[in-house]
């Protein structure tokens, strides 16, 4: 691996950096101020199609849109592409539903200190999923390149590793310094979902706490579904415009889903439900118990509200509110 020779990667580029196509798509996207409130079921039916490249906002078990992830499983969406960017419980849900068949990997399968998901492992080890390797920064910068409208961003990343070899990045020489850099191709998801603290009916949305990749994800995605803890009047959004990460014209659907990140954490609102996350891991140990578990909580429920009710409803959620360390004011 000398500086002189250029190494090539062998990973598949699932979503090409088609900046012109993306410009045309975004130019044609309606900016009319319309009420986009709809149910999660309607949003998934309308905007998530089999074969789409999908990305999930938040941070794995922090501020994720569990309602949409469940609905994708419930509607038995298939052959999705997936951006495995800091994905933990979101990945676990879609792996349980066997919804994707290709994955850009930065962090998958694991649930940080809670260990590895048995079903996510089984699914990834089965050969059913085509993988291209990346890393948290490089996958995040791919979204940033797309958001910026450039076909790639250069980075001091991946070089010298098998992560590079099995990625779809390219080595380039810097035109100024002559040094090797990794060129990271823009990633334009077909559809993404982001769970937010508050949004108006048009899709102007605000996030409190960590934003992770969502600023870029919202701008890189062709279609965007928001789920929100609260639907507020536009005047409320306009009171603190510096908190508006997502303006309405990026958004296709707004779904009102209180506790929508459960069993994940929602900063300033409620803590994660470690017991239920453990219940997931326990059920996944065996395919039969996982099937029964999915039947009980996802396939056998009408919607997310029914799932919350099964998990102890308001009383249990109040306990999780009390456990959240971030407090307002």
């Amino acid at each position: 691996m000398s500086d002189g020779e250029m190494n090539t990667s062998m990973g598949t580029l699932f979503s090409p950096p088609d900046v012109e196509g993306a410009r045309q798509f975004f130019a044609a996207k309606s900016r009319v101020l319309t009420d986009k409130l709809m149910s999660v079921s309607e949003a998934v039916t309308q905007f998530v199609h089999d074969g789409d490249y999908f990305s999930s906002g938040g941070f794995g078990m922090i501020r994720i849109s569990t309602a949409v992830l469940h609905e994708i499983v419930r509607q038995r969406k298939k052959n999705l592409g997936f951006a495995g960017h800091t994905s933990t419980h979101d990945f676990e849900i879609l792996a349980a539903g066997r919804c994707f068949d290709r994955c850009d990997v930065a962090y998958i399968v694991g649930l940080e200190v809670c260990g590895l998901s048995p079903q996510a492992r089984r699914y990834m080890e089965s050969g059913a999923v085509q993988v291209t390797e990346w890393s948290n920064a490089t996958l995040g910068w791919r979204l940033k390149a797309a958001a910026m409208g450039v076909p790639f961003l250069p980075a001091r990343a991946l070089l010298g590793t098998e992560t590079f070899k099995y990625s779809a990045a390219k080595e380039i020489l810097c035109p100024f310094t002559g040094q090797k850099l990794a060129a990271l191709p823009a990633l334009y998801p077909d559809v993404s979902v982001i769970h937010v603290h508050r949004a108006d009916v048009y899709g102007n949305a605000q996030i409190d706490g960590i934003s992770v990749a969502d600023w870029d994800l919202a701008r890189a995605s062709k279609r965007l579904i928001l789920t929100t803890e609260q639907v507020v009047d536009t005047s409320e959004i306009r009171r603190t415009p510096e908190l508006t990460q997502i303006p309405y014209w990026l958004v296709d659907a707004v779904c009102h889903v209180p506790y929508g990140s459960y069993p994940g954490n929602m900063p300033y609102e409620y803590y994660l439900d470690k017991e239920h996350l453990n219940e997931w891991l326990e059920a996944e140990k065996d395919v039969a118990t996982l099937d029964a578990f999915l039947q009980k909580y996802i396939y056998g429920t009408q919607d997310f509200a029914e799932y919350l009710a099964l998990k102890g409803g308001e009383e249990h959620l109040a306990e999780l509110r009390a456990r959240e360390p971030l407090q307002r004011g």
Binding site: A106, R121, E133, L159, G160
Partner: peptide, 17 residues
């Protein structure tokens, strides 16, 4: 055809660099 699929780089690759 991995025996065990692990999480992947996470942020480790760029951190190590």
């Amino acid at each position: 055809q991995p025996k065990v699929r692990l999480p992947g780089s996470g942020g480790a690759c760029e951190i190590a660099i």
